[in-house]
Each structure stands twice: as C-alpha cells, then as structure tokens.
Design a protein around this nucleic acid. Structure first.
Lengths: 220, 220
DNA sequence: TGTACATCAGTGAACGCGCGTTCACTGATGTAC
DNA sequence: TGTACATCAGTGAACGCGCGTTCACTGATGTAC
C-alpha cells in the first residue's frame, strides 16, 4: 500500500493515484477532525478538501455544500450513538437498574469521547428535516431511551404510572444537560466537584426514588 | 431627535453626526440581533459595523476583535439572567415550592425569549476565562440556583441531606437540558408532546419527591 | 464669553487573503464485444 | 485476451466577493485660560 498525499499534517493515510478512491469517507473524517479541533463552525469546505489532500473542487462531486457534509456527519453520529446506547442497554439485561446505569454512562461517554459527532448532532444547528435519514437516525437513538423508560415504568404499580415518553424525555434532558455543561473537554467547560458520571448517577437515583422505584444501583 | 443612518434595514435608530455617540452599545445590540438571526457563528465583525451604520474600522475603537464583542454579549447575558432568576426566586417567598417553580419557569423563559443571549452564554464557545467579569457574572447566576437548593435541602431531616451544591447542579442540568433540546425556536428543535415548562415541572416534582420533599407544587 | 488646542471617535481607501464556486480538462476505471 | 469507448472522479486555473485589519486623516467635543 502506497500513499503520496494526504498523510502529512494529520491528514488521513490512504492509497492515492489520480483518483482518491475513498474521498467521501475521507471528507467525513476530515470534517470530524476539524470539528473536534475548532468547533462545528470553525472549518470550511476548502479546509476539508485540503485535509483530505484533494483540490478544492473535488468535494463537490460528493456533497452539494458544507451543510450537506455536516448533516452527513450528524447522521452518522446518530447512528453510532444509537448503536452505543443499544449495546449498553442490552435490553435491560441482566438486571434493569444495572443496565439503566450503563445506558447513562454510555451517553456521557459518547459525548466525551466523540465530541465532534456530538457537536454536529446537537450544536451545529443542523435541522433534522435536512435529510429523512438524519431524522430516522435521531429517532432510533431516542427509541433506545424510550424503550428503557418503558421497562422502568412497567416496574411500577399500574395505577399512577407516568407516561414512559415523559420519563424518557426527563432522562434525556438530564443526561444531555450534564453532558453539555460538564461533560466535554471544551474551553467552555465548567468545573465540577465530582465526575459527571457520578452526578448523573445520583440524579437518576433520586429521580427513580421519586418514581417509587427503590431498587438501588450497583454502586450508588 | 434626528437620525441619518442606521435606521434602514433593521438597523438601530439613533441620532447620528460624525460621531455615533453610542457605538459600543449599538455594536452589542447588533451582535445580539445577528446572533438571533443566524446563530453565534453566523455573523462577522464587519456585519456588526454595517448593522450599526458605521465604517468597518469603527468597531476597533471599542473591541479588540469579534471574540471580545461576543464575550461582552455573554457577560451581559449572564447579568440579565442572574437578574431574572433572582427576581423569580425572590428568596423563596412567599412559599418555597412556589418560588422554586417560578425559578424554573424563569430559566426556560430566558432561554426562549433571549435565545441570542442564551447562545452567546452557552453555545458560542466563549471561555469563562476570557474576562473575569464574565466568570463573575456566570457565577452570580449560578449562585441563585445554589441558594434555592440550599433552602430546599434545609427542609429535609438533617440526616441524609444531600449536598446543596449537587442538588443545584441537578436542577441546572435538567433545566439546561430541556432548554437546549426543546426550549427554543430553533430549526434544530425537537417536537414535544407537552410544553417544556410542564416537562420541567413534572421532572422537578419527581426529583423532589425522590429527595423526600412531598410538598406539591401549585399546579402539579 | 471667546479662543486655542488636545483628545477622541469615526472615515474611507487600501491591502492581502482565503473562500465558494465554475469550468473545460484529463487521467483512471469499467465494460461491451 | 485485446481494443474501443463511456463514465467517473479529480485537476487546476480562474472569478468575484467579503473579510479582517491598517493607516493617515478629519470632524466633533471638551477644556484651559
């Protein structure tokens, strides 16, 4: 395997003749790297081309414009996110509360270790209507939270059960709030007296107790 | 009062000779309008000058660069935010739960009706270290939440009281999460089966019950 | 009250730069026969 | 297996544009006397 361009200055490795061979992929990676470096607004279409080692006109073969590129990053982000959440939740096995704890941690983990995807998904101002696949991916991710909420609610006595959708929205909001405010290596980050994971875990324990679910979490 | 420039195309009214007289103020307003229109990344220093009706060199008399301008918007945002929260909380009078409910609503209200300030404060990537006054303003705002949390915690039996700081962080995260995900007129907004205010109120009721505080809110 | 002068805040022209986008082109790849 | 040809993906030069920033300047304001 040989490469002649694109592997200097942090650029991606890759075989390279006249045709790049995998430019679409390379541009998505470029966007990701550049978002991680300078935020979703901090890079240009030309930057992405440069990073991938191609001429500034090349990206037009794959994306209409910068927005379409970012929307693609967001879509892929939601897909990976949904995957990570699904794996962590694992249908509530072997024990519901344990799985629920894993789910929250997986959420924070994603925000922390994939900040570029997370930004593209939630902060780049990409409308979900840009692309049906984007909305679908986003809904698939939320569906995991929703299904977890359903199993939790099912533990409660049938009278006085709150709507599972609402519980899912609460969980999502709390987790997203913690991730946004404290969960990333941002410059804008705020100091915290405890790790975000513990802050979340404590919040969820209190919330679940409020729902009447008294089962403790593994390491509460 | 006469004005010769700056009142076309949405620009601010104002008397205007050779000297603007109030350019610093006008630039802050310009930034605010432009952020509201196109997001914190969607405008340039030159745009702000144009909006204020002055030459592109004029802003340099008041701000080192665009970042300093945005940091100033953020600072002022935190000041107004702190004020709004303080007023709503009103030291927990006349009744703690009622005041707590008002506090949450005031938070959501600010995010909804001052989206430009809110963006500058939380999403523009402005580091709090840019300017000591910025950090101070941000801490003053949080102090309101913290003091509310302290009064809430004080209602609990003294054994098993959670740290007030943690409770404040929970409240902040939940509210910020709801505001970010559902609370604004964004293109990126998500649909919701209920108004954000009710979602928050329900969350807080459950959370407080989890803390052992069973007093109901006025319109739970 | 008037005059001289210092200071301040905005002007407008200029610059170099990088961006987005287009275009005719060309090298590489795949396919029909 | 070889050849002709269509299609595809990237080139590189070019363009107009607006940005950030600087500069010597100038009009307005304030102040000392």
């Amino acid at each position: 395997m040989r490469w002649t361009k694109g592997d200097r200055d942090g650029g991606p490795p890759g075989p390279r003749g006249y045709h790049h061979g995998n430019l679409k992929e390379a541009l998505l990676r470029a966007a990701l790297e550049l978002i991680a470096e300078k935020g979703p607004a901090g890079f240009t279409f030309a930057d992405a081309a440069r990073w991938a080692g191609v001429s500034p006109a090349a990206p037009y073969r794959h994306f209409r414009d910068r927005d379409e590129l970012i929307a693609n990053v967001a879509r892929r982000g939601f897909e990976l996110f949904a995957e990570a959440l699904t794996t962590a939740w694992d249908d509530g096995k072997p024990e519901l509360m344990q799985a629920f704890d894993r789910l929250g941690r997986a959420y924070l983990d994603f925000a922390k270790h994939q900040p570029a995807y997370y930004s593209a998904m939630f902060e780049a101002g990409v409308s979900l209507d840009t692309d049906p696949a984007l909305r679908t991916a986003s809904e698939t991710a939320f569906a995991v939270l929703r299904s977890a909420a359903e199993k939790l609610v099912a533990l409660m006595p049938s009278q006085g059960r709150p709507p599972a959708l609402m519980v899912a929205l609460h969980v999502w909001s709390m987790t997203h709030g913690i991730a946004s405010l404290f969960g990333r290596g941002d410059a804008a980050r705020r100091a915290l007296p405890m790790p975000p994971e513990e802050l979340l875990e404590a919040a969820m324990l209190i919330y679940l107790r409020g729902l009447g679910l008294t089962t403790g979490l593994p390491r509460g």
